[in-house]
Computed example of a mutant assay.
Amino acid sequence: MRVAGLADLHVTETDKHPFRELFSEISGSADVLTLCGDLTNLGTVKEAEILAEDLASLSIPVVGVLGNHDHESDCVEKVSEILREAGLCLLDGTSTEIDEVAFVGTKGFAGGFGRFMLGSFGEAPIKSFVAEGVQEALRLENALRRVRQGRVVVLLHYAPIVETVMGEPPEIFPFLGSSRLAETIGRFEVNVILHGHAHRGAFEGKTPNGVPVFNCARMIEKPAGRPYHLIEV
């Protein structure tokens, strides 16, 4: 299966069919399109409606997760509804199967990487922040447990490894992802992980147990010179 990975569309209310041509191109190159969050810029209903119009140009299945920008305007339920009605299979701690390939996804969350990962200690707001990251990892784990053996693609918005955020200012690394996500994925047989969020990060890396990770943010330079990346699964 040819899977196209794309993230960080950041559709705005002033855009006019910003991705119609690109989606048509992807339909001719891939079997499935995956969208790894920040589909809208401010999470508004109008932005979601503009993207929904362009999704109609796809002739292949499209699977995705939301990102932090999609939550900005507190309209996430309505935004999700619009995108689902337009054909997007939106994953939120859930999975779907297409031609014997399982797609498992959740937004993920921040928290930092390796020995610099934030721990649940001190003030209540810190504990709440860490708890959110733990909860997202648990949602991902539960979804992976429900997947039967076979080919598995994991979709995230936040990065699971530090390698694919390299290039961003080090000061913001803790807000770009968390090793908790990679630790969770490492308990399962997974073929590839796709994410976005780090606009100035690196294109590829691997988890500690060798699973390929691709930063599919639209702004990242990719081998084929296109805003998306094609993966054979």
Rank of each mutant, 00 (worst) to 15 (best):
A56D: 12
K16G: 04
A124M: 14
D99F: 10
D15P: 04
E123K: 13
E97M: 13
R20P: 03
L55E: 07
R145S: 14
T44P: 06
V104M: 08
V63S: 06
A124I: 12
D74V: 04
L39Y: 03
L33Q: 04
F129R: 05
E72A: 15
F113L: 09
L138P: 03
Q135P: 02
G87K: 03
V130D: 05
C36H: 15
K107C: 12
E132A: 10
R139K: 07
M117K: 06
L88W: 02
K127N: 04
T44G: 02
G64I: 00
V134I: 15
D92R: 01
E85Q: 03
R148V: 13
A48L: 02
V65T: 04
E123W: 12
V32M: 09
T96N: 09
L58S: 02
A86V: 04
E85I: 00
R148N: 15
F103T: 05
E123S: 14
R84W: 07
F116V: 05
I82P: 07
L83P: 07
R20D: 11
L42W: 10
E85C: 01
E72Q: 13
E123M: 09
E53Q: 06
T106A: 00
V134D: 14
G114H: 14
R148C: 14
L83K: 00
G133M: 08
L118R: 15
G87S: 01
L35N: 03
D92I: 02
R139Y: 08
L144H: 10
F109D: 12
S57G: 07
G64P: 01
L33K: 07
F23G: 02
S120A: 13
C89V: 15
S80K: 12
H69Q: 12
L91W: 06
E100D: 15
E49H: 08
F113G: 05
G133C: 05
F103E: 11
F116C: 11
R84K: 09
P61K: 06
E97F: 13
N41R: 10
G93T: 04
R145A: 13
E21K: 13
A52E: 08
F113S: 06
D92L: 04
R148M: 05
G108N: 05
E100T: 14
